[in-house]
Design a protein around this nucleic acid. Structure first.
Lengths: 215, 215, 215, 215
DNA sequence: TATGAATGAGGGTTCATTCAT
DNA sequence: TATGAATGAACCCTCATTCAT
């Protein structure tokens, strides 16, 4: 399993194991799991097919590992950065910012695979990944519920809110192009604005507003 | 063997052709295009592989036909219902409502396939479908831009707004279960609320502002 | 079986049967027997595959019939024209002339098929055609032997002479193009010249030769 | 499994690759390309179909390789042996001798395939082989033209002469049987005799000879 | 570690032929 | 006669995986 804490001199100094994961992720992301053959991965790593099997147990285990790795990165780059934020609205905004950047900046391969090959794994492997995904959904749901209770955002269904958040953010992998007209920063800013700029109850307004109206 | 003498509520009275499309859509939706074999589809329709080829030209043509059919339904059930709405905000709200219902009520198979197998078709076939998809994106972008110009919603990037809309709505296919805790109606209502209830510039503020300007 | 004695107003007035044979011959000549499907022949005749089977017994029977028909035409246009010639050398020269014309002028399709699909038929069907071919070889051998006995041509092996004759003449189907630089007439004349102009013993030499034998 | 420790006179010591080519050539020669299945070739080599594909790229590539190999052998055993002969008539006679021996002695399989499957290859592969064939035709044409200019043979059309030469010689593959009544040597001798014994202008002898006799 | 060779299973597709209508 | 539908057998080829070396 690739550790994030590494000399990190880029792809050339990686262990064979990591070079395989790297190549597999690239190919599976580009062509899909079924359309990527073991031969493709062997070619991309300069190994023979049989040689490859000294490093991996099976094609499916590769996919599982890539998905776990993607979740590792996600949890490191997104979740762990925001879990400690006490204010639920700030937590959600931070989460959106980090998540947009993850999807748009460099880790899109693994994320794309997790999203696109969501039904390829089966049995235990599938359950493992699904459990990790559900943790994230629940984290979002909980945060939305908190923000509603605290009066920071309007009372909406937390589940629908969480999946709306996810849909907006994860859908990005289907249309974003790094060399396109919209930058990652713009997307992060605009999406925060779109979802929270409206959703959010503009703090002073409401209670005063009521008072004013009553007056 | 299809007997004509039957109550025939649904699938039983279809032409062989349509029964094949129906079965193929179901299987491809469930397992993915690559994981669905011609044998699977033959089994599901009670034909032999060779018999199947009496009705279709190739596996890929099946996928193309399903996707075109999905786009047909989409354009009939969603686009054609809202294009004539003059008010851009109402148009967008109506569009969201119709689209959510399409995704949640019965046509999800074809839509799912269009979304999930977005890179499976190649060449001319792929271009055809992509062109139809892009029409929808542009329709949304344009509507958002109009609504911004008319002052009905806050000034956000129309492209990001359009893809946020799409992400929210289309992502539904990944999590919605008809027998789940959230109904299709709820989703439609809540998502309208989430995206426009916030995005929209609340009416009261504006009139005074206008009056002031006019004054 | 197509009769040669017909109104002969060309392809349009033919019986379905003959239109099938005509189309099959054309296609099999162009693409080969294995590469020509029953569907191809059905398409070319405007029939359905099943309709075709009302007129023919099997694909192989079609090939047999075409080959028999080719042999019919050959015997009518070549053999029957020259068998009665008493002088063996004149007979051979006439035979070459007729044969070259047959191969180059209009009946090349059936002849090509007989030559190219010489191993496609099996069993009884193959034997039938082979028997007819062998008759021709023996006819040539006999004629060469006669011409040698009569002192008209030099003493060569009649079998090799016969197959040389055949090779020269039948090979034409591999290289002749009606719109090419060499006309059918030229070929006929030149090949007579090449084979007999040389082979033939020029008049004067002969008498001495007899004397030698007598001595 | 190829064991190295063996007397190994012929086929047994070949590389798997060559054993495949050998078997394929034999089968394709016997039954034709279309009628020879990959399964046939696999059976003949003791491999499975999938195992076969470890050594070859496709069925068509096998045919191409066989044809190129046939041309290689032809150029080595025929062309290279005679190109250097200065006298054009001697060159043609030598060529006929070598060519007859090639067709009758052991290399007939590949030659037969080149001749019979002349329309099976397509595209680039076909062009490659055709180019090599055409070189030979031009070589013969040129040699005939030279021999005519030098007054060694009577003035005939070089193109027709070249194709007559080819027809005689190549047709052999259709009728020659190693255990038949005519030996390869006989064929070579007789065909030289038939084509050149007559074609050739008996140099000074004839016109003077006549005068002398008359005198 | 590494590999060449091999394989069983299965992929999509085509074929000549049949038969109820 | 004619046909739409169907089929069993075969087609070429690819796959993930294994194993002796």
């Amino acid at each position: 399993m690739p550790r994030a804490a590494k000399p990190d001199r880029k792809a050339d100094s990686l262990s064979p194991r990591d070079r395989i994961l790297e190549a597999a992720a690239r190919l599976i992301c580009e062509k899909g799991y079924d359309a990527t053959s073991i031969q493709d991965i062997a070619d991309a790593t300069g190994l023979t097919k049989a040689g490859l099997y000294h490093h991996i147990r099976s094609k499916e285990s590769l996919l599982l590992e890539i998905q776990h790795y993607g979740m590792d990165v996600f949890e490191e780059k997104v979740l762990s950065e925001v879990v400690a934020i006490a204010d639920p609205l700030e937590r959600l905004k931070g989460c959106m910012d980090k998540n947009v950047r993850l999807v748009t900046e460099g880790w899109s391969k693994e994320v794309t695979i997790i999203l696109h090959e969501h039904a390829t794994l089966t049995g235990e492997a599938r359950s493992q990944i699904n459990a990790r995904k559900k943790r994230y959904v629940r984290f979002l749901e909980t945060s939305f519920a908190e923000a509603i209770r605290s009066g920071q955002i309007r009372p909406v269904d937390p589940k629908v809110a969480a999946f709306s958040f996810l849909g907006m953010v994860l859908w990005i992998y289907k249309w974003f192009r790094p060399d396109g007209p919209v930058s990652a920063e713009q997307i992060a800013r605009e999406m925060q604005n779109i979802l929270f700029g409206g959703l959010e109850i503009k703090a002073p307004p409401r209670p005063p507003a009521r008072k004013v109206r009553r007056a």
